[in-house]
Write a protein that binds this DNA or RNA. Structure first.
Lengths: 192, 192
DNA sequence: ACAGAACTAGGACGACTGTCCTAGTTCTTC
DNA sequence: GAAGAACTAGGACAGTCGTCCTAGTTCTGT
């Protein structure tokens, strides 16, 4: 029954704690307390704290992949799919205002720690970038699809950072509206 | 002679370490080693680690203020002043790709730590926002000046996050060019 | 020259960290 | 039901953390 159940619980709780408190500030005790297991029990499932981080990054990677697949399967047009991505800012606004973007803040923390997992964390961004590039290509702009994808990714990251700094929900909604307008103006006016 | 010289050295080194390694990951020993003083000596200058953080934030605030004043004193037009702000991304590209934006990453870390100094750190963003708003007003768009200021601030933050995640210098330069074009299109076409 | 403030070095302190060990329990498989 | 794997609790471990104390040095003003 417990085929990795405890392990999954550890990763799940660690995922939340790494997001809400940061990787460095989260201790084994914190995770153990939340999961409800002994602290010394970790070693059977993960040899080091970095192994937990790897598992958390893999979990987020997988979750992201499933989310993108779901958006793809919903069967709207590319514009609608891109808006699904942008709408994350509104849907997760409470968490974003409290803790920032899970991917962006983890990447920045790992960059400062010069941590080996930083590249894997950035790969989650890569997943979004590639998926967005596909959508832009489907929108009829193959030449600049990757640039546009990175641009939109950066835009949403900036919104997340400032939303966290100022705890400003109205700002999020305003920027999402601006992004939507920018997107609609893209097809007709390809100067921006 | 030493009228706060040691204290200033502590703050100066702590500022760099907080930026390059993060607040939580920087210890008294790290700072002491860099300054070249005894670890126990801190208590005479700062009662707690949070006091050092306060001093660092105050230092960054003051440094930002001086920078904005200098841009103001250079005597260009508002467009030129805004470009001075944007050009920071290029001028500091090496550090940004390695550690992100000093203000953005600190705000995000303090948000996760639920730290009392988070508001003070966000005030540095406030300084940029208000200064940028003044420039946009001088550009002839008083109604949306604050929104435009926040928008540009978020834009540059997004560039910093993704530049750090992907270590992509070309991306920085490309986005800076896009921002410049956006800025030049603002006065004539006020739809964006 | 001298009193008092300012400053410093070194280390003690309790708490907590990540890691690892050991002994015991539960489960799976035959 | 027995053998072996999978799992768990509890604590030992060396190290580091932020904080704080004490004793000694250096500086300042008179």
């Amino acid at each position: 029954m417990s085929a990795g159940a405890t392990r999954d619980a550890i990763v799940k709780r660690a995922d939340a704690l790494f997001y809400e408190g940061g990787f460095g500030a989260t201790s084994f005790s914190d995770i153990a307390g939340l999961v409800g297991i002994s602290r010394g029990n970790f070693y059977h499932h993960f040899k080091t704290k970095d192994d937990i981080l790897d598992a958390v990054v893999a979990l987020r990677m997988e979750r992201t992949r499933r989310m993108l697949d779901a958006w793809e399967a919903e069967g709207g047009d590319p514009r609608q799919r891109i808006l699904s991505f942008v709408h994350m800012l509104v849907a997760n606004r409470a968490q974003i205002m409290a803790f920032g973007c899970p991917v962006g803040t983890l990447c920045c923390e790992l960059a400062k720690l010069d941590h080996a997992a930083q590249h894997k964390a950035a790969d989650i961004f890569g997943l979004f970038r590639d998926w967005l590039a596909v959508q832009f290509r489907a929108l009829g702009m193959p030449a600049r699809s990757e640039e546009l994808a990175l641009h939109l990714l950066a835009w949403s990251q900036g919104v997340a950072v400032l939303a966290a700094a100022f705890r400003d929900e109205a700002f999020i909604r305003r920027e999402v509206a601006t992004i939507t307008a920018w997107l609609d103006g893209l097809a007709s006016n390809q100067s921006d």
